[in-house]
Amino acid sequence: MEFAKTHSAGFLANHMARLFAAGLQQRFKELDLAPAQFMVLLELWEEDGLTQAVLTDRLDVEQATMANTLSRMQRDGLIDRIANPKDKRTRGIKLTPKAREVRQKALAAAATQNAEALKGLNEQEAETLIALMQKVILTLKRR
Rank of each mutant, 00 (worst) to 15 (best):
M66N: 01
T112R: 10
K119G: 07
D60P: 02
I130E: 13
E46W: 07
M66H: 01
M133S: 05
K5R: 13
G77R: 02
K119F: 10
I93L: 04
T6Y: 06
R100M: 03
A67G: 03
N114G: 10
L78S: 11
E123P: 03
Q63H: 12
L121T: 02
R100F: 02
F3R: 02
L95Y: 02
T65I: 13
E127Y: 13
L138R: 06
E30K: 11
A67D: 04
Q52V: 00
R72S: 13
K88E: 09
H7V: 06
E30L: 07
W45E: 10
L31R: 01
E123G: 05
N114V: 12
G77S: 10
R27G: 00
K105N: 12
N84L: 03
L138G: 11
A67H: 09
R142D: 10
A9S: 14
Q26A: 13
N14L: 10
R81M: 10
P97T: 09
Q37F: 04
R89W: 04
N68D: 06
L19C: 03
A64R: 15
I82H: 10
N14G: 14
H15V: 07
F11L: 15
E127Q: 15
L12R: 14
L70C: 05
K119T: 13
A110N: 01
V61R: 15
Q134H: 13
E123S: 14
E43A: 02
L42Q: 09
F20V: 15
L140I: 12
L50K: 05
A4T: 08
K105S: 11
E30M: 09
A34F: 07
I79V: 15
Q63N: 10
A21Y: 08
L59M: 07
M39P: 01
L59E: 05
Q104E: 13
D32E: 14
Q74F: 10
P35D: 03
A99S: 04
D60V: 05
M133N: 07
T90V: 15
A9P: 00
Q37V: 05
L41P: 03
K98F: 05
A53T: 07
N14P: 01
E30P: 04
R89I: 05
K119P: 04
L140Q: 11
V102Q: 10
A131D: 09
R143P: 14
T128Y: 15
E43Y: 02
T139Y: 12
T112G: 13
M66T: 02
L12F: 07
L59H: 03
L44R: 02
E2F: 07
A108Q: 11
A109L: 04
E43V: 00
L107A: 00
E123W: 10
D32N: 12
N68E: 08
R81W: 15
Q25F: 05
Q134F: 02
N68Y: 08
G77I: 07
K135R: 04
H7E: 11
N114K: 11
T51E: 00
A13E: 08
L138A: 15
V136F: 02
P35Q: 08
D32R: 00
P97K: 06
A99F: 01
G10D: 09
E123H: 13
L55M: 04
L41N: 02
K98G: 05
T90L: 13
